[in-house]
Simulated assay, not measured.
Amino acid sequence: MMSNVFLTLLIVGTGGGLGAVSRYGVSRWAAHYFPSWPYGTLFINLTGSFLLGWLAGAKVSGTALLLLGTGFAGGYTTFSTFKLETDALHSGGRDRAARLYLLLSYLLGFGAAFAGYLLGSVR
C-alpha cells in the first residue's frame, strides 16, 4: 500500500507534468504564428487563472484540486516566463509593448479568475 505522501506527490507530479507539456505545446504554437508578441504566455496565464478561479468557485477539493489546481495549473502557468518576456520587450526598446503586456496580463488575469470563479459557483 502506498503512503499518502507518495500518492499526493504522484497526483501533483502527474498534473504538473501534463500542465508543463501543455504549456510547451501552446508556447511553441504561438511562437510559430506570432513571433513578435508573447501571445502564448498571455493565453496560458489567462486560461490558467480562469481554471484556478473555476476550481475555487466550484469548491473543488481533495484529489481533484491537487491534480488540477496544484499540479496542472502549477505546471501550466508561468510567472517567470511572463517576467522574462516583459523584460525582453523592454530591453528591446519596446517599452509601450512591455507596458501593454503587463496591463493585459494583470487586468485580464484578474478578470479571467473572477469569471472562472463566477462560472464555478453556478450550481
Results as ranks from 00 to 15, higher is better:
122 V>S: 12
121 S>G: 15
15 G>F: 11
89 L>D: 05
75 G>S: 07
111 G>M: 07
116 G>N: 05
114 F>N: 04
31 A>Y: 00
1 M>Q: 12
22 S>K: 03
79 F>C: 03
74 G>L: 14
123 R>T: 11
102 L>W: 12
23 R>D: 09
10 L>I: 09
6 F>K: 02
82 F>T: 01
28 R>V: 15
94 R>H: 13
58 A>S: 15
2 M>Y: 13
97 A>Y: 10
84 L>W: 03
76 Y>P: 02
23 R>V: 06
46 L>A: 04
2 M>F: 14
96 R>H: 10
81 T>Y: 07
64 A>C: 03
31 A>N: 13
5 V>D: 08
41 T>M: 10
89 L>T: 03
73 A>C: 14
9 L>M: 15
102 L>G: 11
72 F>T: 02
47 T>G: 06
77 T>H: 08
121 S>F: 02
116 G>E: 07
117 Y>P: 00
10 L>Q: 02
2 M>E: 11
11 I>E: 09
10 L>F: 14
101 Y>P: 03
31 A>E: 14
69 G>L: 06
72 F>D: 09
49 S>Y: 06
10 L>H: 03
122 V>G: 01
54 W>Y: 15
29 W>H: 06
64 A>M: 15
42 L>T: 02
89 L>R: 02
82 F>I: 00
43 F>N: 01
114 F>E: 00
2 M>I: 14
119 L>H: 10
97 A>G: 03
123 R>D: 07
89 L>C: 11
67 L>R: 07
117 Y>C: 11
57 G>T: 10
105 S>M: 08
13 G>Q: 08
87 D>E: 13
103 L>W: 09
15 G>H: 10
83 K>R: 09
70 T>C: 10
50 F>Y: 12
47 T>D: 07
72 F>N: 05
57 G>S: 12
49 S>N: 04
74 G>V: 08
70 T>G: 09
108 L>G: 03
101 Y>A: 06
85 E>T: 08
61 S>A: 15
36 S>L: 13
51 L>Y: 07
20 A>R: 02
112 A>H: 05
21 V>Y: 10
90 H>N: 12
93 G>R: 04
66 L>K: 08
57 G>Y: 08
45 N>Q: 09
34 F>H: 13
79 F>N: 01
20 A>Y: 06
29 W>K: 02
60 V>N: 04
56 A>Y: 12
56 A>K: 05
118 L>V: 15
120 G>S: 02
17 G>L: 12
47 T>R: 05
80 S>L: 11
